[in-house]
Simulated scan of single mutants.
Amino acid sequence: MQPFALNYARPAVELEAAIPYVYDAGLQLNVLHDGRVAASDFALLREVGTTTSTAGSKTHFDD
């Protein structure tokens, strides 16, 4: 017997997007490719809403 939910389950769609920042373990912040702190780039924040780090907790924000 197959569980009901498996009749409707679909794989998550992966979006093609280039993330303009990377995590810097030394600073423990997301930084832009030119070395500036990503949270200080207001245009980036307006576009993406936040610079959530993928290193560790998903609820950690660089502010």
Rank of each mutant, 00 (worst) to 15 (best):
L6R: 12
S53N: 12
Q2V: 14
L44T: 04
G35I: 03
A9M: 06
H60G: 05
V31W: 00
L32W: 01
T51P: 01
G49M: 09
V22I: 10
V48R: 11
A17W: 08
F4A: 15
G56H: 10
D34E: 05
L32M: 10
F4M: 12
L27W: 02
L15I: 12
Q2K: 15
Y21A: 10
Q28Y: 02
R36V: 04
I19Y: 05
L45P: 00
V13E: 13
Y21E: 07
T51G: 11
Y21G: 06
D41N: 13
S57G: 13
V22R: 15
A38P: 06
L32Q: 09
G26H: 05
V48S: 03
A43N: 12
Q28S: 14
D41H: 08
R10H: 05
D24N: 11
Q2I: 15
D24G: 00
T59R: 15
A17F: 09
S40R: 04
L45S: 03
N30Q: 08
N30K: 04
L15H: 06
N7C: 08
A39K: 12
F61V: 14
Y8H: 09
R46K: 08
D34Q: 02
L44D: 03
A17G: 01
N30C: 12
V48Q: 05
P3Q: 08
H60K: 15
E47P: 00
V22Y: 15
I19V: 13
K58F: 10
R10K: 14
A38W: 03
D34I: 01
R46D: 14
Y8E: 04
N7V: 00
H60A: 14
P11G: 11
